[in-house]
């Protein structure tokens, strides 16, 4: 469904030139949920931004559904690939009601049956119709993130890119949103690419994942490997240990990568 090969990107110029992605390649099958794990600066979000089209000076090949996509995207691409942002407080227009936020993409893509679609997608993300005409500031963080998911779903895409969709939420809300994302994936047979720094979330959500560090893919692991701790790279092992919680003795052994 999604093939990335030899993706490279540079930021800055001259001596400040920074090789932010180094030959990143992976392949995702239809209906699969794929994770990108890494610490800040590892380039995991940059990969998503290249796929989604927010960045367009990358080099390499990105193939969606067998078609090579160019740097410049057309309308058809946006109907196939949608993105959910990390921060639910920043990703909704503060002066637009939920209704307007959800109708906007339908208007751009000239859908008919707009009211019905808005109602349907709201109920799909478990938000009742009483939320429809509220402004974002009248919603909680979890509810806003549901709206963001609804906005991504309303164009009926096949691939959804998730950029740390729950890291700004409380754990109890995180569980609800993760469950919702899993249910929707099953129902609509969606393909997910999920960025997270949290191994536990990746383990719950994804079948396979790429561990990234400083712009490169360090290791590709399956969820089973992650769950059993069957890891080959030291970087991944350290990340795994750190995710298990505080252990004074283990910390002294940490290295910098």
């Amino acid at each position: 469904m999604l093939n990335i090969s030899n993706l490279n990107i540079y930021f800055g110029h001259g001596s400040e030139k920074n090789h932010a992605l180094k030959d990143v390649s992976f392949e995702i099958k239809k209906g699969e949920s794929f994770g990108l794990v890494g610490e800040s600066g590892s380039g995991k979000s940059t990969v998503l931004n290249c796929i989604s089209g927010l960045l367009n000076h990358w080099q390499g090949t990105i193939e969606v559904d067998g078609e090579v996509v160019s740097q410049k995207r057309d309308l058809a691409f946006y109907r196939k690939v949608q993105l959910v942002f990390q921060d639910p407080y920043g990703s909704l227009h503060p002066r637009h009601t939920i209704d307007r936020t959800l109708k906007e993409p339908l208007a751009i893509h000239k859908f008919t049956d707009i009211n019905h679609r808005v109602e349907k997608v709201l109920s799909e993300v478990d938000l009742g119709s009483q939320f429809r005409f509220r402004y974002p500031h009248q919603l909680s963080g979890g509810q806003r993130q549901r709206v963001a998911v609804a906005r991504a779903l309303i164009l009926e895409p096949e691939i959804i890119l998730l950029d740390e969709p729950t890291s700004a939420l409380d754990v109890s809300i995180q569980a609800e949103v993760l469950n919702l994302l899993q249910d929707i994936r099953k129902e609509r047979n969606l393909t997910y690419v999920m960025v997270s720094h949290d191994l536990a979330v990746i383990s719950y959500m994804c079948e396979n994942c790429a561990v990234m560090s400083q712009g490169s893919v360090v290791e590709m692991i399956s969820a089973e490997q992650l769950q059993s701790g069957d890891l080959s790279q030291n970087y991944t092992k350290q990340l795994f240990t750190a995710s298990k919680g505080y252990d004074r003795a283990a910390i002294d052994l940490f290295q910098d990568f």
Partner: peptide, 21 residues
């Protein structure tokens, strides 16, 4: 801001983004 990125990723053109958002 993310909400402008979001509408861009829904295929909105510059005129729509500037005038409506």
């Amino acid at each position: 801001s993310d909400f402008i990125r979001a509408i861009k990723l829904q295929g909105a053109g510059a005129i729509r983004i500037i005038s409506r958002h």
